[in-house]
Design a protein around this nucleic acid. Structure first.
Lengths: 250, 250
DNA sequence: GCACAGCCTGACGTCGCGTCAGGGTCAAGC
DNA sequence: GCTTGACCCTGACGCGACGTCAGGCTGTGC
């Protein structure tokens, strides 16, 4: 195959292939009399490896040493790629969860600390800056309160959404006080309404995602506090209802 | 907060913050008398947004226009980030699946086409090279079908498929050890079962294609090794049986 | 008052290509 | 046999997003 064909097949530019040739990362196994690059099936194979490692963030020089390592058979590359991809999957999931948490926090009128927000980036020691931040941003509650107000009163939409959320939470609290079991149909309906509210106002939230969110309500003290503030035991009640609803749907 | 502290908190270098200041992407809201950069909570907020969009592959200039767009409220950024992250999640999952597919294929002695391997990269026009693929790699429909079916496979499917394959191989080895002739009806039945297995699990494999596959078992050392590992002489035995079966059917 | 960590502003280097410029090649059609 | 247009070649410069000094000012603890 010629460069153009390979480029189109692999989804890269011709210039990229030229570059890889120049730096010795991927030199086509043949040339025509006129000097045209000719790529063999083995070359395509190598290109595939190159692109995978590149996608995983390796600098090209490192990719070359990896692929030229004679002690590494293809299966080893597959295993490594698999491991790295799964790492990445985990990280992306963590980031998705972080964004969802932030959305949820906004809806509930609480604001996360900078530490929480940056948690998903780089693996620094979470303890390290905690004291300092406390000192600088003052009492975290006050800081949150100020953020809450500014966030709550800027947009009208926001007010409506928040009102809907509070209305639902009130009805959930009422159900709890009335002794409705969290795994009853009525509780699950309320949970489903909660899911619909998220889906309608924020992002598509399938049942499993909702279940994960529900777990957060009891695991994260700030969410717990918000619910407990409305009615004691509500966090656990909602969490159970949400998960029961997810199980019902799944 | 000073640059160094912000840098440590956010997991970036001081130089990066200098850079963001220089290009006007993130200028700290204050400076000390000595010219030290001082970052406020709002600056951290913006930095967080910047890092998220950067992670998602946006060039910095575009990040600036996104964040400076007065018509986009925070919730809109969250929704966009959420959408993009979920896209990325899907893509990564597809890549993981592709690597797993390659691993399983290797173990089963089936090798994938370059097209299948590159599928996960860039969204090139699938029609574009169809003719060429047809010419070079054989029947397109068969390969497309293979991709289609494989795409839907879960991990359990793979386990099952692999187990079926191993079971059949074991019975073939037993037949070989029992002295069953490779061109006997019994051997041909086993070969036919092999063909059905491919057709059921991967792609429609008519007898002629199966015969070609059979030839590969002795011609390609990778396939040969897989079979010979189970029982000496098995590669040749299977190859003969497969071709006898194809002749019987044709 | 001094050591030493931390901050500043240039300014040049690097990586992974993008993007011309200037020129040869190849298959098709007239 | 000649043109046309798509494709290929090799420089060579440009660019984005920083890394990495260099040379000098600042702020804090002993």
């Amino acid at each position: 195959m010629n460069v153009g064909e390979v480029a189109a097949l692999a989804g890269v530019t011709v210039r990229t292939l030229h570059h890889y040739d120049r730096i010795g990362l991927l030199s086509p196994s043949g040339r025509t009399a006129a000097g045209y690059r000719r790529y063999s099936a083995a070359d395509l194979d190598r290109l595939h490896q190159v692109l995978l490692y590149r996608e995983l963030g390796f600098p090209l020089e490192e990719v070359a040493t990896l692929l030229d390592d004679p002690s590494a058979d293809p299966a080893e590359h597959l295993r490594r790629q698999h491991r790295l991809l799964r790492d990445r999957l985990e990280r992306t999931q963590a980031m998705v969860a972080a964004v969802e948490k932030e959305m949820e926090a906004r809806q509930m009128g609480i604001s996360l600390t900078p530490q929480e927000r940056f948690e998903v980036f780089g693996e620094h020691d979470p303890e390290q800056y905690e004291a300092e931040v406390q000192e600088r941003w003052g009492d975290t509650d006050a800081y949150r309160e100020s953020s809450r107000r500014s966030a709550a009163y800027t947009k009208e939409d926001w007010v409506r959404i928040k009102a809907e959320g509070e209305d639902l939470m009130e009805r959930m609290a009422a159900a709890l006080r009335a002794g409705v079991a969290p795994d009853s149909a009525q509780a699950m309906d309320l949970a489903e309404e909660h899911r619909q509210q998220i889906t309608g106002n924020f992002y598509d939230c399938p049942p499993e995602m909702h279940a994960a969110l529900g777990r957060m309500y009891v695991e994260d003290e700030r969410f717990t506090a918000t619910y407990e503030n409305v009615a004691p035991g509500l966090a656990q009640w909602v969490s159970t209802a949400v998960q029961a609803n997810a199980a019902r749907q799944g």
